[in-house]
Design a protein around this nucleic acid. Structure first.
Lengths: 146, 146
DNA sequence: ACTAATGATTAGCTATGCTAAGTATCCAAA
DNA sequence: TTTGGATACTTAGCATAGCTAATCATTAGT
């Protein structure tokens, strides 16, 4: 019989698992030929649509100079466009190119395959358990940032 | 009744949750005064006990040179010891100092408070579910790198 | 029309990931 | 026993990404 975990232990365990899960899929991220910060920013632009640099930095929870450099790299690789906003010429609108959109979807597929390979070691009950846990986590993590 | 999640959806959801959970506690990590890689490595040494550098690199899923540098920084700050193994003088045993153990527990407390605050929105059943899921994740994430 | 505030960039530091190459040690086979 | 390969780690050098401080351009508010 498995021991009941305390709130502290659950928290600690979730934290550890989060770190290692992300490290696990890092390989696939870098297989896209771009780093994790670039991949994550591109993902926001592709799925969320065009937005300003400051907004993108905010969503990604990094400072504007950091995001400015990330976007610069993405522009150089032809994955996003950077155009001055007509309504406010101080600001810049970042949007995805076809190449960026295509690359992101391919990378996502690879990452998912990797996770699926990992998850397929489990039986149906365990998958169901992870599914339930995911819903619960989403609920509290999303609620936090609203 | 909640819909059954597919393998793909579980994978995607776990990935997303991992990213957001880590962002959620990032503030507390950096409040320790050391970077995330150092904090994570120190955590392994404190909770898992002394181990060789290669083993530590493996557990942390980074290359030995990377871990060598991380350990170097921890040694400089007096948080871990690095001693040559008497049984095999090629290898090095990393162990935590009192200072390292103390720092980690303080940081852990801050991080845990943050996570506990998040988790305390949940009822006992949901906590139990997360606990079970954590065990399952640990199993496959650790098994992958053995 | 000034001045203050805002959006973005540049410069420069640190941390962390990698590979390639070097050093020290151990083991195994001639 | 010695020698040659394997193993454990480090060093050197590169790239990405995080930060703050300072700068530039533009907008907004007296």
């Amino acid at each position: 019989m498995t021991k009941e975990l305390s709130l502290e232990e659950v928290g600690r365990s979730l934290h550890s698992n989060a770190i290692h899960l992300l490290r696990h899929v890092r390989t696939e991220d870098s297989a896209m030929g771009i780093g994790p910060a670039q991949a994550s920013a591109l993902s926001v632009v592709v799925f969320g649509g065009p937005l300003t640099l400051n907004k993108l930095a905010e969503v990604e929870q990094v400072r504007p100079p950091t995001m400015s450099r990330v976007v610069e790299a993405l522009v150089k690789e032809g994955l996003v466009r950077r155009e001055t906003n007509r309504d406010d010429r101080r600001s810049v609108i970042i949007s995805s190119t076809d190449k960026g959109t295509k690359l992101l979807h391919e990378g996502r597929n690879r990452r998912e395959k990797r996770l699926i390979k990992l998850l397929s070691k489990l039986d149906a009950n365990e998958i169901r358990c992870l599914g339930k846990a995911s819903r619960i986590l989403s609920k509290i993590l999303v609620a936090e940032h609203s």
